[in-house]
Design a protein around this nucleic acid. Structure first.
Lengths: 124, 124
DNA sequence: GCTGTTAGTTCATGTTAGCGGAACTATTGA
DNA sequence: TCAATAGTTCCGCTAACATGAACTAACAGC
């Protein structure tokens, strides 16, 4: 039987739970992806937001988790997939959670953004 | 061979990582334990902070995760174990993270504290 | 001392979830 | 149409979770 490529599904804001958000951010790879998307603050394709040398299947898995947790929105654009953060929405539901986590994460690891912006706290 | 009861080990603040804190709080059982400890704001033994009907071995496992993540401190007192939050310490390392999460969690589920305090935001 | 009770831990086991390689799809460009 | 690029899906392996059974450790009553 033929392998199908299922469409992306994004949970409605009402279905997003605090637990799944925390779970999604509890993985260092996924946390770094979200940090890069924040610091880059423009849509990015999967491989450029993911850490180097990460197997593609693993990347794909992590993006799926982030998507299903409601943290990112993914859209196919030609041959690639562009990802944008849903921080504003999540922040409306769980005020302060995402900014606090991202600020702490950036402080802890100092992720490299593509453009070298000076020192930006992740206040969405 | 004899089964030993190993002493509790609590990570130094320097060894506490954001990821392990988020991971520990990503589980609904553990999140509810931490909420109860916060709302109760006094040391509690394991079974009174855990959800009802949870098997003891499962409880024990969850407390171990919380302990090793650095979120709680456990001490044997006679026949029971009393647990206290390490929120103040963690908050010094990751400012705002724990309060934001606990406030969101309390708002989402409205956990019952032992004493029926009115409406308390989890500002440590 | 011994016995029972309470509170929690450790071990063993079945179930589930994550990682990564191989094979695949889908789009674009020569 | 062929090749390249960017991800996805499937599958096997391994690690982690949840829980029952058996255990430890502290205490109370006798």
């Amino acid at each position: 039987m033929k392998r199908m490529q299922r469409p992306f599904l994004h949970p409605a804001l009402g279905d997003v739970t605090l637990e799944s958000v925390l779970y999604a951010l509890a993985d260092p790879v996924r946390l770094s992806i979200v940090c890069k998307l924040t610091l880059g603050n423009c849509p990015m394709n999967c491989s450029s937001a993911a850490p180097d040398k990460l197997p593609k299947s693993t990347q794909s898995h992590h993006y799926q988790v982030l998507r299903e947790a409601g943290l990112i929105r993914s859209e196919r654009r030609g041959t690639e997939v562009v990802n944008t953060l849903r921080c504003a929405e999540i922040n409306a539901k769980f005020p302060g959670v995402i900014p606090a986590i991202l600020t702490a994460a950036v402080a802890a690891h100092a992720f490299t953004a593509s453009a070298g912006s000076s020192s930006k706290t992740a206040e969405d």
